[in-house]
Design a protein around this nucleic acid. Structure first.
Lengths: 121, 121
DNA sequence: TGTAAATTACGCACTATTCTGTAACCAGGT
DNA sequence: ACCTGGTTACAGAATAGTGCGTAATTTACA
C-alpha cells in the first residue's frame, strides 16, 4: 500500500505553492541556475532565513534542485527539476488569469465587493 | 494612469489563492451554488469564522459572488463569478501536476531531499 | 610572515507580526 | 425563542524578520 500522504492533489500542491515566495522563486529560477545571493538580489524583501527555509521546502517537494559546491566561500546553486519546469507554465497561466480578471474587476461599479440582495417573494 | 495595485500578476493571484481554503472552496463551488452551511459541511475542519473571512476575501477578489436572500432562516448563496470559473481549470491543472510529480517523487531514492555535492578542484 | 578582514550560505535564538480557533454575541425574520 | 450567517474579543499558534555566529579560504596590509 502506498503511503497516504493526503487525499487531495490540489491541496497538496497548494501546500507547496502557498505563500508569497514559492511562485516568485519559481519565476526567477525559470531563467536558469541561480545562487542564494542571486535570489536575494532578485527580491530584496525576503530575509535570508526565510529564503533558506523556502528553498529547502521547494527542494523537499522535488521542485528545486540544490547543488552545493564544496570549497571556498561556499557556493550553492539552485535550479528547477523536471517537475518544477512543468510547473512554470501553470503558474504563468495564473498570472495571465489575473491580467484578464483585472479588466473584469475594473469594469465593476461597486468599489469593493458586490453583494446581490435578492428579495424573497 | 492606472492605479498601481502591484507589479506582478502572479504575486497578486497568489495573494488570493494562498492558504489552505481558497482552492478548496473553489473546488466545492465549481459544482454550482452553495450555501454557507453547505461549505461548512463540505470541509468540517474550517471554523465558521475563517470560512466567513475566506469567503469575503474571495468575494472582494471578484472570484465568488455572494447572494443574500432576505426571508426565512436567512439564506446566503455563494457561487463562482466568470473569472472564478476561468480559474477552475487552472487549479485542476495544478492538481494534475501533483499527480504527475508524485510518480517522480516516489521514483527517488533518497528519503528526503537530494542535495548534490560537487567537489571543487 | 603574521594576522585581521572579507566572502557565501546558512543555523540559532529572540522578537514582532500575523493567523487561527473558541466562544460568545448580534441582527433579521418567523 | 429560534434559525442562519456573521462579527467581535481574546488567547494561543504559526510565521516572519533581525542580528550574531560559523566554515573554509582568499585577500589586505603592515
Amino acid at each position: 500500500m502506498k503511503d497516504v500522504v493526503s487525499r487531495c492533489p490540489i491541496e497538496e500542491t497548494m501546500r507547496v505553492l502557498s505563500g508569497r515566495w514559492p511562485t516568485l522563486l519559481l519565476y526567477y529560477l525559470k531563467d536558469g541556475t541561480k545562487r542564494f545571493s542571486d535570489l536575494r538580489r532578485d527580491n530584496p524583501t525576503v530575509s535570508h532565513r526565510i529564503l533558506a527555509l523556502e528553498l529547502r521546502k521547494l527542494e523537499e517537494a522535488g521542485i528545486v534542485r540544490r547543488t552545493a559546491h564544496a570549497g571556498y566561500p561556499l557556493r550553492v546553486d539552485y535550479d528547477l527539476t523536471a517537475p518544477g519546469l512543468k510547473l512554470v507554465p501553470l503558474i504563468d497561466a495564473l498570472g495571465d488569469w489575473w491580467e484578464d480578471t483585472e479588466d473584469d474587476l475594473t469594469g465593476r461599479v461597486s468599489s469593493t465587493a458586490e453583494t446581490k440582495l435578492v428579495k424573497a417573494a
